[in-house]
Computed example of a mutant assay.
Amino acid sequence: MQWNDEGLILGSRRHGETAVILEVMTRDHGRHFGLVHGGASKSKSAMLQAGNIIDLTWRARLDDHLGTMQVEAKEMRTSRFLMSACALHGFLTLAAFLRVLPERDPHSGVYEAVNTLIDQLDNPEVAAILFVHFERAFLAELGFGLDLSCCAATGTHNQLIYVSPRTGRAVSRIPGEPYKERMLQLPSFLLSDGRGIKPMEEDILAGFNLTGHFLKNWIFEPRAQDIPPERQKFISLVLKDL
């Protein structure tokens, strides 16, 4: 068995004296592990840091084996994370999200979205908005899409300002008013007619609260996991730098 692909390094661990087991999110083959001979050497260790993009060839005798990886550097990003705490915590959050995906299950759209987002992580104003959109898309990728297209109570498309914390469906102002203390706020930048509007800090925080609620209840808690703590640190940093 053999294939070639591009991959985002999520992490690695030492194996023996000179090798490492590399964890990579690939474009076409999903999240994958592979043994890199000599990966612990000085010549390769810098290339195999989390966040870097590599070209790789994976080989194994059988498809379900760990296999080996031959790697070549494509884009080195680690230094950017060392210079920006916001970028570092954003990447660590994304890596934790990707580890929710089943191993070897292709998600090419997620791969492209993650790399687009990583390129903006040291630009807080852009990163904040993209991150909320990514979290919403990530929920949809796992089968838990939020329906923000119309009011769940009336079917109308106007004054959508709430989201039901139970169903993930939008609710407009008037039918939602009696229950507003229990509703999640729906920021306009998550709606199609909100594109191009520069969100206020409270809108971005509302967006993170919205996606965070469903990430916690629909993705992480059913797996007996917590939302990665790096997410809250990223939110604090990105809002501070707006």
Score class of each variant (00 low, 15 high):
P175K: 12
Q159M: 13
H157Q: 15
I174C: 03
L148C: 11
A152E: 11
V171I: 15
R166Y: 06
R182Q: 06
P178K: 00
A152R: 15
T167D: 02
N158E: 05
Q159R: 15
L148E: 07
R166F: 07
L146A: 02
I161A: 03
V163G: 02
Q159P: 14
H157Y: 13
P165V: 14
H157M: 13
R182S: 09
N158T: 11
P175M: 03
G145Q: 12
A153F: 09
H157A: 12
P175L: 03
R182H: 14
E181T: 05
Q159W: 11
S172I: 02
K180N: 03
H157L: 11
D147N: 14
T156A: 13
L148W: 09
E181R: 15
S164C: 15
S172Y: 04
I174V: 08
R182D: 10
Q159A: 15
P175D: 06
R166W: 04
A153Y: 02
V171H: 01
D147H: 09
P175N: 12
I174W: 04
A170Q: 10
N158R: 10
K180M: 10
V163A: 08
Q159S: 14
C150Q: 04
T154Y: 06
L146Y: 08
M183E: 01
E181W: 09
T154E: 10
P178R: 03
C150N: 00
C150I: 01
P165N: 09
E181N: 15
V163C: 03
G176F: 00
C151N: 10
R166S: 13
C151I: 09
M183G: 02
T154I: 05
A153T: 11
V171W: 04
E177C: 09
S149R: 15
I174D: 11
G168I: 15
R169S: 00
R173V: 00
G176C: 03
K180H: 14
I161G: 04
S172K: 14
T156N: 07
T154A: 01
Y179P: 06
Y179D: 13
T156K: 11
Q159H: 15
Q159V: 04
S164P: 11
G145F: 02
S164K: 04
G145K: 07
D147S: 09
N158G: 12
G145P: 04
N158S: 08
G168W: 08
Q159C: 05
P178G: 06
L160E: 05
R169H: 14
K180F: 07
P178Q: 13
G155P: 00
S164W: 09
G168A: 11
D147Q: 14
I161E: 06
S149H: 15
G155L: 01
S149T: 10
T167L: 04
V171R: 00
S149F: 14
V171A: 03
E181S: 07
G155Q: 05
A170S: 07
T167W: 08
I161S: 05
G145S: 15
T167N: 13
R182Y: 13
T156I: 04
